[in-house]
């Protein structure tokens, strides 16, 4: 089993550095390009959400990944305001149309790209867990051609 773990104070530059490290780690572990991109993207979007809406800009967050045969499983821990990424924010109906269309894109991607998305909070710490399938799993699920 191959694992990755890191601590981060999420800001755009630190997030870019971390997701670059994640991508390099996954490539080295032999993970396909699609899964490499999407794991890095899901981490980027969740951490960006924590940085933007969490309300604790200096609080450290944690990222842990596990490369499994058929998927990559990850967990992000943060001490921001409780927020379930499966629920998503209410759309701002007062916003102009063009802003409404771009709002929530990050969480939309997180929901669409993950095969598993779980969230729990103990009142102090949020834990967001996700899985993204590797290419061979997707291939098998399509059955014989």
């Amino acid at each position: 089993m191959t694992r990755f773990a890191a601590d981060i104070v999420p800001n755009p530059v630190a997030i870019a550095g971390l997701t670059g490290d994640v991508a390099a780690f996954l490539r080295d572990a032999g993970v396909d390009a699609r899964a490499v991109h999407h794991v890095a993207l899901v981490i980027e979007e969740i951490l960006t959400n924590v940085a933007t809406h969490g309300g604790s800009p200096d609080a450290q967050a944690t990222v842990a990944l596990e490369v499994q045969r058929d998927r990559i499983s990850g967990e992000i821990g943060d001490r921001g305001k409780p927020f379930d990424p499966r629920s998503g924010p209410d759309p701002d109906i007062a916003a102009p149309l063009e802003e409404r269309r771009i709002g929530g894109l990050g969480l939309h991607l997180v929901r669409k790209l993950t095969s598993v998305l779980d969230y729990r909070s103990d009142g102090k710490q949020n834990r967001t867990a996700f899985s993204i399938p590797r290419e061979q799993e997707r291939g098998l699920s399509h059955g014989p051609q």
Partner: peptide
């Protein structure tokens, strides 16, 4: 090699 929602905006 990588595009996030910030890039899409």
């Amino acid at each position: 090699e990588f595009v996030s929602s910030a890039g899409l905006r």
